[in-house]
């Protein structure tokens, strides 16, 4: 029954057991809707950050004009390598998903291990990337002059010339948010991998691997879009 049809029901006219409800409220629940909703929330976060990025870019003196505080970053090659690692991770999950669907336990486990390790590798690569940017002088200023907290934690003596570049700030913000998203994915991966190694192949395992893979494909999609934003602006 379609949603519109369900919403058009006149419930006062139709006593009796109706057809569109689940047969009974059974557990364990399929997690597909929950995972999907969570990804919608994450989509909102990245969509809003993207809107903020574009608005901030065009604020005041437009980016690229003389006097603009928006200074485009150089892209280290590591950025592309990391993106490749994430794509490979997603591919490994795709293979794991297919294997799980065909009941091939060994291939599923291999795919899961490869996908997870590549996920860790991506996260490690991102740390190296931030290190690289830092070496180039692209650092945020934890400023004593600005922050009145008075804690030594916030008083790193970084050069102030770097302070005002919003392109850099957005890069750090987006890559850290995406890194947190990856960390969440690694938790989901760990839970799924535990199930894959503990249980025999079956429909339940295949579904778990499918949802885990879906999450990782989404991670790749978000990163690809964010990369597109960085590179094109």
């Amino acid at each position: 029954m379609s949603l519109l049809h369900a919403l058009a029901e006149k419930p006062w006219l139709t006593p009796g057991v109706a057809g569109d409800a689940p047969q009974r409220a059974e557990a364990p629940w399929d997690r597909g809707i929950g995972v999907g909703l969570f990804l919608v929330v994450v989509t909102m976060i990245f969509a809003l950050v993207t809107m903020a990025y574009l608005m901030r870019m065009g604020h005041g003196v437009p980016a690229g004009s003389q006097g603009s505080d928006w200074r485009t970053l150089r892209e280290p090659p590591l950025l592309w390598i990391n993106t490749g690692i994430l794509a490979a991770s997603s591919l490994a999950f795709l293979l794991a998903e297919r294997s799980a669907r065909h009941g091939d336990g060994t291939a599923t486990r291999s795919g899961m291990i490869a996908g997870g390790l590549l996920g860790f590798a991506f996260l490690g690569g991102q740390f190296l990337l931030w290190q690289k940017l830092s070496d180039w002088g692209y650092v945020l200023l934890f400023s004593a002059g600005l922050c009145k907290v008075g804690d030594p934690l916030f008083t790193f003596p970084f050069p102030q010339t770097i302070l005002g570049n919003p392109a850099l700030a957005f890069f750090y913000l987006i890559s850290v948010l995406h890194g947190l998203h990856i960390a969440g994915g690694l938790v989901a991966w760990a839970l799924t991998a535990r199930h894959v190694f503990a249980e025999a192949p079956g429909a339940a395992t295949a579904r778990m691997v499918q949802l885990c893979a879906r999450y990782w494909h989404f991670l790749l999609l978000v990163w690809a879009l964010m990369m597109g934003l960085f590179v094109s602006t």
């Binding site: 919403l7 029901e9 409800a21 689940p22 009974r24 409220a25 809707i33």
Partner: peptide, 20 residues
């Protein structure tokens, strides 16, 4: 929020249509 939405979508008992 994820719980409230998924519970309404998935855990309604037999006969509990959206419009009931």
């Amino acid at each position: 929020g994820l719980n409230y939405v998924t519970t309404v979508l998935q855990a309604r008992t037999k006969g509990m249509t959206l419009m009931r």
